[in-house]
């Protein structure tokens, strides 16, 4: 690992190794975008294959979708503030905003699990139709990412509490931040091309 430290840069960019990790994570996000593209592609092909089962209009509840959207969008904003506080070397502010972000993420997840239960009660399960199979795979993959993100960020918070702000913990925090913003970017497209598209009469 490179020992050269450039203190004129933000903590997370100070060593060559940390810069490479951040670059590597961007490359990973590029691959994640392609993963979600395949799921959007499948959904785009199958979204009207109802097989006699419920349609978008039957199951989507716009009010709940708007709440989910605002929760996730706000959590992306608070994650941005967390990184902003990190760059001001304000550890307490950083941890506070990270916890707020996770609370909003947990709220989103709670809404999504309720949404799936509501769908199942309406007779809309993965086995019902091609539309619902592709819908659940797309939403479920995103929800699984959010779940993973909450667990991952929790571990980063524990490290921040134990070790404080170092180039290494700053880099880890910055990377979970990128991941979290990415989840919101995916959601923007789910909101638009799944929910709104399905509800346009």
């Amino acid at each position: 690992m490179s020992a050269k430290v450039d203190t004129s840069l933000p903590l997370e960019y100070q060593t060559e190794q940390d810069r490479m990790n951040i670059l590597g994570f961007w490359v990973f996000l590029g691959a994640e975008i392609v993963l979600f593209a395949t799921l959007f592609g499948v959904y785009g092909v199958l979204y009207e294959r109802f097989a006699g089962g419920p349609t978008h209009q039957d199951i989507f509840v716009i009010k709940d979708v708007m709440i989910q959207t605002i929760l996730l969008l706000t959590s992306s904003f608070t994650m941005g503030i967390a990184i902003f506080e990190m760059r001001r070397h304000n550890l307490k502010g950083l941890i506070t905003w990270l916890v707020i972000t996770l609370a909003l993420g947990a709220g989103f997840l709670f809404m999504e699990i309720n949404e799936f239960i509501h769908y199942a009660h309406e007779g809309a399960t993965m086995q019902t139709s091609a539309f619902l199979s592709s819908l659940f795979v797309l939403l479920g993959t995103h929800g699984a990412h959010v779940t993973l993100g909450i667990g991952w960020a929790t571990m980063v918070i524990i490290q921040l509490v134990k070790r404080g702000l170092t180039p290494t913990t700053a880099r880890k925090t910055f990377i979970i931040g990128l991941y979290w913003h990415f989840l919101d970017v995916v959601w923007i497209f789910i909101f638009t091309f799944v929910y709104l598209k399905g509800l346009v009469a």
Binding site: W26, V34, A37, F40
Partner: peptide, 22 residues
């Protein structure tokens, strides 16, 4: 950062792949 341009090219390529796939 010093990899800003690389990130930008990476994202442009990802968007291109999205369009091709979807």
């Amino acid at each position: 950062g010093e990899d800003g341009k690389t990130n930008l090219v990476n994202m442009i390529y990802a968007v291109f792949m999205v369009i091709v796939i979807v």
